[in-house]
Nucleic acid binder design. Structure first.
Length: 272
DNA sequence: AAGGCTCGCAACCGCTCGATT
DNA sequence: AAATCGAGCGGTTGCGAGCCT
């Protein structure tokens, strides 16, 4: 189609080109689906893997009639559809293990996941980013810093251990006995040095200037903690009554209150 | 009731590595 | 030895649900 005005011709050509590009984009989009998986796609994938097994994901995607790329299929299968995937909240045991393994290996999510049957690297990564890193931010620390790792070891991990022990007593389970736990919390000798150091740290928390965020000018007191904490020597109330409560930062309170074990804010009120 | 905000999770992306050809 | 491909990994993004104002 030609017009009398060359400028109009150009406009038509541009318009035609745009239409063609849009059409190509649309076709490409139709060819490889993205975004959330439908039930139908899940069923196709499950059925295909059940019949032919995992692997060769690009070939699998085509053979199964899925308009997805191989990577997407693999991810969907490994993170969601695989039969032994465990869903729901991480247990205190699992959280403890993640914290410990992360302090050992850093962001090696798949390596960490290998030690938590039924949990995926993606899930662990998400847990770390959404829960742990958030707390690090609130503490004005780097999540991967030694000081934050130490804070976790000194405060949070003992709480988890107590929780596990308490659950074990309550439910008469043998999911993780004290021996197993003591492997996770390094304990060269059973004195209270870490407790004392923890108290110094807690004083710093309490003495933070604005009361709403924690400023740690000298975290060395935590670094000096050598993890040989007597687990029985520092109860939840010890920690509370020594002043580890910061407005606007109720990590422990939230986590412990989640399953109704301790409501730290109530205890804090009691202290007042 | 509605709009904005936050959070958690599923999914994607880019990169690397190892096996195969 | 180089190229290609599949698989895996870690970082990042997008979206939906719930919460708040």
């Amino acid at each position: 189609m030609k017009t009398e005005n060359p400028a109009d011709d150009n406009l038509i050509n541009i318009s035609n080109n745009n239409n063609r590009i849009q059409q190509e984009d649309q076709e490409a989009a139709e060819e490889v689906r993205r975004g959330p998986w439908t039930l139908e796609e899940d069923n196709l994938l499950i059925h295909y893997v059940a019949c032919h097994g995992e692997g060769r994901w690009n070939f699998l995607a085509k053979s199964a009639g899925l308009k997805r790329n191989g990577k997407s299929c693999r991810l969907r299968w490994l993170n969601y559809l695989k039969p032994d995937i465990k869903r729901g909240n991480l247990s205190p045991q699992e959280q403890l293990l993640i914290l410990e393994l992360h302090s050992k290996w850093g962001n090696r999510w798949s390596k960490i996941a290998a030690h938590l049957p039924g949990r995926t690297d993606n899930e662990i990564k998400n847990y770390w980013r959404t829960r742990v890193q958030k707390q690090a931010r609130q503490l004005n620390m780097e999540a991967n810093s030694q000081s934050f790792i130490d804070a976790i070891r000194c405060f949070y991990m003992p709480r988890l251990v107590q929780k596990i022990e308490q659950n074990s007593i309550d439910h008469h389970t043998t999911a993780m006995n004290t021996d197993q736990v003591s492997h996770i919390i390094p304990s060269s000798n059973k004195d209270t040095s870490c407790s004392n150091t923890s108290l110094e740290f807690q004083d710093q928390l309490t003495n933070s200037k604005d009361g709403s965020s924690i400023v740690l000018d000298d975290i060395n007191s935590v670094n000096s903690c050598n993890y040989d904490m007597d687990l029985g020597s520092m109860s939840a109330s010890d920690m509370l009554f020594s002043g580890c409560h910061v407005e606007g930062n109720d990590w422990l309170a939230n986590d412990m209150a989640e399953d109704g074990m301790w409501v730290l804010d109530e205890l804090w009120q009691f202290r007042k």
